[in-house]
């Protein structure tokens, strides 16, 4: 599974569009991902149709030179009833995909783009687990407080740090209600070429923006063995994620803050 994923990686959407041979190759790789990642492991999820370069995921890729669209709002739905206790596949997938591989003696100083949180209900002792990451708020406090505008929200709702202007003041980390952000505490050399990250800058989940722009799903969604995560366009009523949010009760974490998050949970 990871092999077919890596094969597809170096391709940019632009080239996929202009070069028919490559396009066909990506389609094949994409179907491979679909086959292994979804049809086999999570038969309940079938949000894709086969045929286009991006058909495996149902994610519309943009033409080269085309900016992210305001019409789209990317989101995630996590069904925590399916999230297996002790499983950290999403965490491993994320940190492999994004090259978060450095070792630190103090885990509190290490970058954690996504983490598994174990909840125990104080009333009845019921235990649940869920993955926690940047919630990609529509009204992100990190973007409000950033002095240089490095903390930003892309048109399609993905909250990112522009490390070219991040000065490492950590005000966003003070402002984030989800503890989603990490400061890179040491010099790095092992970055993934598609995921630049470095010392002294703040970082967090990018929703695998480099994959989304290629028509792929975020690594955590793709690698979840339980199929507990659904990725898609919250603005498109016909998307799988929108249909599920419409049909079931979902929760926005810290909904009291009215941040209108892009990551929803089902079953809290």
């Amino acid at each position: 599974m990871s092999d077919s994923k890596h094969n597809a990686q170096p391709e940019l959407p632009g080239k996929a569009q202009t070069n028919p041979a490559r396009r066909a190759f990506i389609a094949a790789a994409g179907v491979g991902v679909a086959g292994l990642g979804f049809t086999a492991i999570a038969p309940g999820l079938h949000l894709m149709a086969v045929g286009e370069a991006n058909a495996a995921t149902g994610i519309a890729t943009r033409k080269p030179g085309e900016a992210a669209s305001r019409a789209v709002r990317w989101g995630l739905l996590v069904d925590i009833n399916k999230c297996a206790p002790g499983c950290t596949k999403c965490v491993e997938a994320c940190h492999t995909e994004n090259g978060v591989t450095e070792k630190l003696a103090d885990p509190r100083q290490a970058s954690q783009w996504i983490r598994k949180v174990e909840l125990t209900d104080r009333r009845n002792g019921k235990k649940t687990e869920l993955p926690m990451m940047c919630q990609h708020c529509a009204n992100p406090p990190c973007v409000d407080v950033c002095p240089t505008g490095a903390s930003m929200k892309r048109a399609d709702g993905i909250v990112l740090v522009d490390r070219h202007s991040c000065i490492g003041c950590r005000y966003c980390m003070m402002a984030c209600p989800y503890k989603a952000r990490s400061l890179v505490h040491l010099p790095l050399t092992e970055q993934n070429p598609l995921v630049p990250r470095g010392q002294g800058c703040v970082e967090s989940c990018t929703l695998c923006v480099h994959r989304i722009d290629r028509g792929q799903q975020p690594a955590c969604v793709e690698q979840c063995p339980e199929g507990a995560m659904t990725f898609g366009d919250l603005n498109d009523p016909s998307s799988e994620i929108s249909k599920r949010i419409a049909a079931t009760h979902t929760t926005q974490v810290r909904s009291d803050l009215r941040l209108d998050v892009g990551v929803r949970y089902q079953g809290i």
């Binding site: 885990p107 949180v117 909840l119 125990t120 209900d121 926690m132 989800y178 974490v253």
Partner: peptide, 15 residues
């Protein structure tokens, strides 16, 4: 941070 009011919380990230 009180991310999940009403729950006891643990994680690898000192939640």
């Amino acid at each position: 941070l009180d991310i999940f009011p009403g729950y006891d919380v643990t994680s690898s990230f000192a939640d």
